[in-house]
């Protein structure tokens, strides 16, 4: 059930020079799932800011955010105890039921802050008995974050960096060199295009600038094989077979 509620910042810490982790605690009456997102109202900003759910408990939500402009810069300076209004849960999460039965090799690929929903998905899949392979991509060593957290989930973690300073050189699309039985990907447009272009079965999580985040303004529409779809309400996760390249 969609709602808006005040949450309190319980924790807000830098993971590197640009990426932060924020834990929000709030009214215990909400539900979210891997691949869904929340929309934060920030003081002095007209539009809400969308962020993927990285983790959650019965009364908290963890977000990972990169400072990309004025709103996220303001967030980075917020102290614990600050109250933020949150709209949630938004979008359809990953559809785990679409993984064909008996699929052995499930690849979860993230570029940059695409790691947030992929962390949540990794956790969920492991809880359900999967042994996913995780591929994380960063620009260089200074941009990396959450490696220890991913490894603590005991997942099989591959790291890629554009500069080659960390892990394998290249984009997380290199993880496709070993063809997965199914994949989930979240990251920059170029990475999503490369995954969708393989024709392999999987799911991709998209982003766009949003007016509302709950399906009423038509500000985020993408044309798919099934027609015009709202990234916020019909996505942000789409089946690879529905993507028009």
């Amino acid at each position: 059930m969609l709602k808006t509620a005040d949450f309190v910042i319980a924790k807000n810490r830098a993971l590197n020079q640009n990426v932060y982790e924020m834990v929000l605690t709030g009214a215990a009456d909400f539900s979210v799932a891997a691949g869904q997102f929340v929309n934060l109202s920030l003081p002095g900003k007209f539009l809400r800011r969308p962020f993927g759910v990285c983790d959650y408990t019965a009364d908290s939500i963890t977000l990972l955010y990169k400072v990309a402009g004025g709103g996220t810069a303001d967030m980075a300076a917020m102290a614990a105890g600050t109250v933020l209004n949150v709209m949630l849960p938004l979008g359809n999460g990953f559809t785990l039921g679409a993984i064909p039965a008996g699929t052995g090799d499930v690849l979860l690929a993230a570029g940059g802050t695409g790691a947030a929903p992929i962390y949540c998905l990794t956790k969920t899949l492991i809880e359900r008995g999967f042994r996913p392979r995780v591929a994380l991509g960063f620009n260089g060593r200074d941009d990396a974050f959450y490696l220890a957290e991913f490894r603590a989930l005991a997942a099989d973690v591959e790291v890629y960096s554009v500069s080659g300073e960390l892990g394998e050189k290249g984009f997380p699309t290199r993880a496709l060199e070993k063809e997965p039985g199914y994949y989930f990907a979240c990251g920059p447009q170029g990475m999503l295009d490369a995954f969708a272009g393989t024709g392999l079965p999987g799911q991709l999580s998209y982003e766009s600038r949003m007016g509302c985040g709950f399906g009423v303004c038509m500000g985020c529409t993408m044309v798919t094989r099934k027609g015009a779809r709202r990234i916020c309400a019909d996505g942000p996760v789409f089946l690879a077979e529905d993507i028009l390249l």
């Binding site: 007209f46 539009l47 766009s208 949003m210 007016g211 303004c217 038509m218 500000g219 985020c220 027609g227």
Partner: peptide, 19 residues
């Protein structure tokens, strides 16, 4: 189907849309 993305931007105390 409307216009290509991006269709939305923020302004000081408001927004732009080209749906």
């Amino acid at each position: 189907v409307g216009n290509p993305l991006p269709r939305i931007a923020e302004t000081a105390s408001g927004m732009l849309n080209a749906v």
